[in-house]
Design a protein around this nucleic acid. Structure first.
Length: 770
DNA sequence: CACTACTGTTTCTCACTGCA
DNA sequence: TGCAGTGAGAAACAGTAGTG
């Protein structure tokens, strides 16, 4: 085994990766498409660089032995040598260009496909210098030859202008003394009997993302400190302290660069919530003007320019996708894709100007990219300058609300990239697509456009490209729609602090939760059932009376009283439902639930026999969250906020009841109710054998198919609307004073609309009880 | 590998002040 | 009058993000 230059560079970065490369190569994952492409580009550039030395000897492509032999011969001839192989006892290096200098000296020239000297180039060349010197050659200078990105192609490539060469001898000499020790250290590492343990640090990403990173990093928890937005360094510092989870970051840890966003990220992780600044998101949405053009470029940036007038690494826009949404919600799709190797830019630009028209917003994700490409186009075709500038002015960056964390979902893993935002916000996935990201797009484009490819191959790539690019802009449409929905949702008040994913509580948590809040499920005795029925009947009576009082007080403009009685009416009928349907005990209803009526529904939602009903709600309102722990928190902590709910939101709640009713009616209720009843029977029957199922079924079948179910949903929402008013209406010194109950307060304005809903629920239950 | 945007940090500039 | 110190604001810089 010999330590090669690339192994040496690997070893500088990571012992584990070095060890694997020597001892367990088979577990290395396949090179990523990106690094493959970069390697290929590097090789290509390396070959081109030799053209600046016309009399050089090319040893490229020779095997290890042959290369060594031919190198020795070539050294004798004192001509430039490409890929000169030099070995000393433990090490082997190939020098890109070994160039004779003076009498008996040589220069090392390392060729890189980049456009400048980077810090990691120095040890790379230093290793070569060390080996070559030890092998007996005199080295005069070390150079780095890289692409000159100022070079503009006109006609045939001028290789002398395409490349720039920099003397890096001094920097190399600075590093040189470390090389020998480092080589020895690395050789020791390779001989270790077992794999060195994983060290997660900045080096995993720098200068390139390690192909093995995915494996090493899989030991980190899902929401880990390396994902802190804008301060990865802090993440690695925390890792060193043994803190891996974002939620374990101690309060008071100094935040840098984007502290506001970082604070939101940490808060979301700690409380397991989604952050939504409804106002800011709405502000953003308000800037959009129809027709909204959702737009995306795909480009290819070759190191060596392909078309005249372009410089190195300049982007060639070869494709775009455009979804145009009009204010009637219709969406039209337009696209462009270059299908031959001619310069596509002018055709693309002409069609683009046509497709985008002159009105409406142009939505892109990360505007600097699209603006940059557009500016390059304008520069290449100055006759379009004005039109391009007006296009640029219409651009709106969809990244903004995410970069500013106006919306943040922990599933984004601290990223505002569309790659993370999209799955956090929608169900759209790139999985299973022929082309799933921008890199795959341009690599495949270049493959079938600038290399030999069969017609069949080309057509497949074109199809995949169209699909991919269209999906990218469609994703923008979906994100906007989702944002609009979230920030306008009537139940957003509850939702925006709930996590998206349903967290399954552990058994211990459930038990604890039960013991704190719920009646422990023992089969009720006959007396208890008797008692509950009596209790429920009493509640129905009380609720009816309270509802009458609502009307009286409201007519007399005694709004604090009407609001209070409204809450009481809802509370009592909810409690009646609770003891009849949710198996709540009198003890629970009296002591634990108190006026916090939504608790009755929390319990219901948690019950397995209610899951089908919950699923039904979700078909009507996918945003409906059912995480009980969080719901509980909302109820306890957001009481005042909920009490201050304005008219619009309450009206939307009430509309939601209607929407859900329609939805339920659409859903073939008899069949569903049967299934539901069956589950209900299994569930409650376990505790209460005496329950009158016949009657329940009959009632459902006859006239209360929808009403009882709807009462459940309706009371769920009504209890949320009203429960916050119980103390505010009666005691001064609260956040809302009794005298604050006047026209303009949501609950006051909506009381007339709420009354019929409560009445309906009372009627439905009363009828059932009979 | 390229590029640009953004933003917090650092550095610079400069007017102003108090004091010698 | 010169000089050091101050602080506000501008400009430059650095780091990180995103896109392909």
């Amino acid at each position: 085994m010999k330590l090669t230059k690339s192994l040496f560079m690997t070893g500088l970065k990571c012992d584990k990766l070095l060890w694997i490369n020597i001892n367990k190569k088979e577990i290395l994952p396949e090179q990523s498409l990106e690094s493959k492409h970069n390697t290929e580009q590097g090789t290509k550039v390396g070959i081109l660089a030799t053209k600046t030395f016309p009399d050089g000897i090319n040893l490229n492509g020779l095997g290890y032995r042959d290369n060594l032999i031919k190198t020795k011969e070539a050294i004798e001839q004192r001509k430039p040598i490409f890929e000169a192989g030099i070995e000393i006892e433990d090490c082997f290096a190939r020098v890109d260009i070994l160039n004779p200098a003076n009498e008996d000296e040589w220069d090392i020239i390392e060729v890189k496909s980049g456009t400048k000297v980077e810090p990691h180039h120095i040890p790379d060349v230093a290793f070569q210098k060390q080996i070559v010197t030890k092998a007996g050659l005199k080295i005069r200078d070390c150079y780095l030859m890289h692409i000159n990105n100022k070079y503009i192609k006109e006609g045939d490539i001028n290789y002398n202008d395409l490349f720039a060469i920099e003397n890096i001898n001094e920097k190399v000499n600075q590093f040189l003394p470390q090389v020998e020790g480092e080589i020895a250290r690395q050789l020791d590492v390779t001989k270790l009997g077992s794999m060195p343990k994983t060290v997660i640090c900045e080096d995993c990403n720098k200068p390139y993302t390690c192909d093995f990173k995915k494996d090493c990093w899989s030991i980190l928890p899902e929401e880990n400190v390396t994902q802190i937005y804008y301060n990865k360094k802090l993440g690695f510092e925390l890792l060193e302290q043994g803190i891996t989870q974002i939620k374990d970051i101690p309060d008071g840890t100094p935040l840098k660069y984007r502290p506001a966003q970082q604070a939101i990220q940490i808060k979301c992780a700690k409380e397991n919530i989604i952050h939504l600044d409804k106002e800011k998101v709405n502000e953003f949405l308000d800037t959009l003007e129809y027709p909204i053009c959702y737009f995306d470029f795909e480009t290819y940036a070759p190191a060596v320019p392909i078309y005249d007038g372009m410089n190195a690494y300049q982007r060639i826009p070869f494709q775009y996708s455009l979804h145009i949404e009009k204010d009637d919600d219709s969406v039209e799709h337009k696209s462009f894709l270059a299908k031959d190797s001619n310069d596509p830019r002018l055709d693309l630009l002409k069609q683009l100007v046509d497709d985008l028209g002159t009105d409406g917003s142009i939505v892109v994700y990360h505007k600097s990219f699209e603006i940059g490409v557009l500016n390059e186009l304008a520069k290449a075709y100055p006759e379009f300058e004005e039109q391009v500038q007006s296009i640029i002015e219409r651009i709106i960056d969809l990244e903004e609300p995410f970069a500013k964390f106006h919306y943040y979902n922990p599933r984004q893993n601290g990223s505002a990239s569309i790659k993370y935002v999209l799955p956090a916000l929608t169900d759209i996935s790139y999985e299973g697509m022929g082309i799933g990201n921008g890199i795959e797009a341009y690599v495949n484009f270049a493959r079938v456009t600038y290399n030999e490819a069969t017609q069949k191959e080309k057509e497949q790539v074109w199809e995949d490209l169209e699909k991919y690019c269209a999906q990218d802009t469609w994703a923008e449409v979906e994100i906007i729609r989702k944002l609009a929905k979230l920030s306008n949702s009537p139940i957003e008040l509850i939702n925006n602090i709930l996590p998206e994913k349903f967290q399954n509580p552990s058994v211990e948590q459930i038990e604890k939760f039960n013991s704190l809040i719920f009646f422990d499920f023992e089969k009720p005795t006959d007396e208890e059932i008797e008692e509950r029925n009596a209790y429920a009947t009493q509640f129905i009576k009380d609720s009816k009376r309270d509802l009458e009082d609502v009307k009286l007080q409201y007519d007399n403009k005694r709004f604090h009283s009407s609001s209070y009685y409204l809450q009481q009416a809802v509370e009592k009928i909810t409690k009646a439902y609770g003891v009849i349907f949710f198996n709540l005990s009198k003890k629970y209803v009296e002591n634990k639930m108190s006026h916090k009526t939504p608790k009755a529904f929390i319990k219901a939602v948690r019950e397995p026999y209610m899951q089908e009903l919950v699923a039904l709600f979700k078909t009507a309102e996918p945003n409906l969250k059912t995480d009980v722990t969080e719901l509980e928190r909302t109820i306890n902590e957001k009481e005042t906020e909920l009490a201050q709910t304005n008219r619009e939101v309450i009206e939307k709640f009430l509309q939601l009841i209607d929407t859900l009713t329609i939805k339920l009616e659409e859903q073939n209720i008899p069949g569903l109710v049967k299934g539901l009843l069956h589950q209900l029977k299994e569930g409650i029957g376990e505790y209460d054998e005496s329950f009158d199922w016949e009657k329940l079924t009959r009632v459902f079948d006859e006239k209360f198919k929808v009403e009882l179910l709807m009462s459940f949903i309706s009371l769920y929402l009504l209890s949320g609307i009203t429960y916050g008013h119980v103390s505010n209406t009666r005691y001064s010194g609260q956040d809302i004073q009794p005298e604050d109950y006047k026209e303009g307060l949501g609950i006051v304005d909506c009381t007339p609309q709420i009354i019929p809903h409560v009445q309906k629920a009372i009627d439905a239950l009363e009828c059932f009880m009979k």
